[in-house]
Simulated assay, not measured.
Amino acid sequence: MVLKGSSFAAGVWANAAVLVDKPQDWTSFDVCGKLRGALKVKKVGHAGTLDPMATGLLIICTGQGTKQIDDFVAMEKAYSGTLRLGQATPSYDAMSEIEEELPWEDITDEDLEAAKEAFVGDILQQPPMFSAIKIKGERLYKAARRGEVVERQSRPVTIHSFELQRDESNRQDVHFKVTCSKGTYIRSLAHDLGKAVGSAAHLTALRRESIGEHSVADAWSVLDLVAAAQAARQS
């Protein structure tokens, strides 16, 4: 049962999937931990990690509902966000310090539109160093925090659509919408687009809008979900 922003009975948590709008600066693990404690359910998992900087749709599965996780993970994802031209960071987003600045002022809208075409369709994408992928038994982000660079294999992903719109008041910022397959790193997409136009880029905002037919518009906030679950138990 997929639970959206409506009332529910406490017993549903034995077999459920709930739509949650992840707050910024929370990890996906933080959300699971918060709900595990509030719902008093031992088995809690999420269907697709969101980085701490990102907001948006997490599908949290509980109890027997955790058997659905792989089905949700396989669904098409939709994102919106903003990238900043001319600046590169080690994490490919605003969670780390700027390590390189390159000219961006001469990049036209036409340059961006032409460059993005190479990223639409079936592509190979290299995961960022700041990711949870394991290589030789260690999470990549642990090596990245030591300043190491580990060789990564590029992975096949599919970008179904990629829309760009330059910010009217700050031309260095580019707003985007992306629909893509599972396993796509939007941080890598922003980083690679910056390189493709002869500059650099990193994410300054990211929001997951949907997973399959499930929209963040129907999602609970974490605090509202916790309050509703507590009220249901008390009644």
Rank of each mutant, 00 (worst) to 15 (best):
H46E: 04
A47D: 05
A47T: 11
G48V: 11
T49K: 07
M53E: 07
M53Y: 09
M53H: 04
T55E: 12
T55N: 05
G56Y: 01
L57S: 08
L58C: 10
L58V: 09
G63D: 03
Q64I: 08
Q64K: 15
T66C: 12
T66Q: 11
T66E: 01
K67R: 15
K67P: 00
K67D: 06
Q68I: 01
Q68A: 12
I69P: 03
I69F: 08
D70Y: 12
D70M: 14
D70H: 15
F72E: 03
F72D: 01
F72Q: 02
F72L: 03
V73C: 09
V73F: 02
M75L: 15
K77A: 04
K77P: 04
K77C: 00
K77N: 07
K77I: 05
Y79P: 03
S80W: 03
L83F: 08
L83P: 02
L83Y: 05
L85E: 06
G86T: 00
G86C: 00
Q87T: 04
A88C: 10
P90F: 09
P90D: 15
S91K: 07
S91C: 13
Y92N: 12
Y92I: 07
Y92K: 01
D93T: 07
A94K: 11
A94M: 08
A94I: 07
M95Y: 10
M95K: 05
S96A: 13
E97P: 00
E99W: 08
E99C: 15
E99H: 12
E100F: 00
L102R: 09
P103I: 03
P103T: 04
W104H: 09
W104T: 06
E105Y: 00
D106M: 07
D106L: 06
I107W: 04
I107K: 00
T108L: 07
T108M: 02
D109P: 05
D109N: 14
D109K: 09
D109Q: 11
E110T: 13
E110R: 08
L112G: 02
A114M: 09
A115R: 05
K116S: 00
E117W: 06
E117R: 14
E117M: 14
V120D: 00
G121R: 10
L124P: 05
L124T: 06
Q125S: 09
P128D: 10
M129V: 04
F130C: 02
A132P: 06
I133G: 02
I133L: 15
K134H: 15
K134Q: 14
K136I: 08
G137M: 12
E138R: 15
E138Y: 11
R139C: 05
L140N: 01
Y141M: 13
K142R: 13
A143P: 06
A143H: 14
A143F: 00
A144S: 10
R145V: 09
R145C: 09
R145M: 13
R145N: 11
R146I: 03
G147H: 09
G147L: 07
G147W: 08
V149S: 14
V150F: 10
R152D: 00
Q153V: 14
S154V: 10
R155C: 09
V157Q: 02
V157W: 08
E163W: 00
E163P: 01
E163M: 03
R166N: 01
R166C: 02
D167F: 10
E168D: 15
N170A: 10
